[in-house]
Design a protein around this nucleic acid. Structure first.
Lengths: 231, 231
DNA sequence: TCCATGCTTCGATCTGGATCGAAGTATCTC
DNA sequence: GAGATACTTCGATCCAGATCGAAGCATGGA
């Protein structure tokens, strides 16, 4: 049994500029309409339609009709993880944020990587949680300390439900813009979701980029969590 | 900063049939010559040459000249992990081994997935190590028990060196042919390498497929490790 | 040194897939 | 019901990239 034909097919799905833009946009974890994706990719509605059809048939996206609108989103966390792995490679070969430069670009500052927080903010929060000993590190990723469990529960996160999800609990996720780790896995997703629910985070319009709200900044400060990575 | 152009470029590298065959072949962890890869992909040497050049420039492969021969191999474990993540997706959408059928295909039986053992054998050994309590499981992957450490050390594996590698120690790696986990990470790689060194495993010629030698079967049996997954 | 082999480069040919104008279908709003 | 909007399908056009024959360069062996 040879996997190469299907590997090539998946690669080809990702390997076209318009489709890559769409996948990137959808990696904010939200659902987008066909029209929004056409505009994001700077193609006509009919071109977007054929691309989206291929992405759905290829298992990368799922579509939900709501009246005249068709909402597309990434099909699974497996798809997101594969895109993430490719992004790490893509950044290694592409232009990378200068080492010394402080980038002000909203995407590198803070963004959602499907369902968890990435960018400078993602790295900062993660490292802060480690420094405060809310997160430990073991051979395979992060662990949650008793103090960390109290913080999460205090924020309203149901840790039992998080443990029961069929994915890694607390993954060390290599951040493509920072080349350091941010918290992924079920815990990273739960924390990020909760911070959005609390309105401590919100999205820039039509973007993966994320900003910390005023109440978020003060809430995170109270927890002793930093908004900038240590140097 | 938008990552889509580079994402599309990486996808396109993988997304061509001849190149996908080459990447698949190289995922056995060995180095192949340009001619061997041309034959694997059923293209002429000149076509292979242009493809290989693109894969090297794209950071997927590295090349080492040895006299007239040029040996290509996968550039890093990050590349291998990205390919693996895509393979999981690719199998989900492609023809999948029938549930009830017992596949005799050497690739699904046992193969190397870059640097660790996969397929039925990889899953069997992993589950056996878990059943014998040589491996534990935690939130993020596998852990090595004291009994497991004795086994590994007894086999000649330097666990200190394994711990120092900059990658996950003992990863739960979803096997694309079995839809169950096999042992990946630095430990999976070290164990597999050692089993080849001991001549307990050997490759089918020019293939990712792996066979257990007679001494391997008896050595593994002595350790109480199964060659077939439990049902 | 000559011949064989491995590999790369060059240039011409071909094709698969992206693209968009036009048209059609479905849903929404007044 | 009419008009607007969202989206899909159809068909013609175009082009980027794959392909291989030919030629050239590098290495190995007799």
């Amino acid at each position: 049994m040879n996997a190469a034909p299907n590997l090539a097919a998946i690669g080809a799905l990702i390997g076209h500029p318009a489709r890559a833009v769409m996948l990137e946009a959808l990696n904010d974890g939200r659902a987008w309409t066909a029209n929004e994706l056409a505009m994001a990719a700077a193609v006509t509605a009919q071109t977007a339609s054929t691309h989206l059809k291929r992405l759905v048939e290829g298992g990368m996206l799922v579509v939900e009709p709501q009246g005249r609108h068709r909402y597309f989103r990434i099909a699974s966390s497996e798809v997101a993880e594969a895109l993430e792995a490719l992004e790490v490679l893509a950044t290694r070969r592409g232009a990378r944020p200068g080492l010394g430069a402080v980038r002000r670009d909203p995407i590198t500052q803070a963004r959602t990587c499907y369902d968890h927080l990435a960018g400078r903010l993602g790295v900062a929060l993660t490292e802060s949680l480690v420094a405060q000993r809310h997160l430990g590190e073991d051979d395979n990723g992060y662990t949650l300390t008793p103090a960390g469990a109290r913080i999460m529960t205090g924020l309203g996160i149901d840790l039992t439900a998080v443990h029961q999800r069929r994915r890694m609990f607390a993954r060390k996720c290599l951040d493509w813009s920072e080349r350091r780790h941010h918290l992924g896995g079920a815990l990273g997703a739960a924390l990020t979701e909760r911070l959005f629910e609390l309105a401590w985070l919100k999205h820039f319009p039509r973007s993966r980029a994320v900003k910390v709200t005023r109440q978020g900044a003060s809430g995170l400060k109270e927890l002793g969590l930093a908004l900038d990575p240590s140097s």
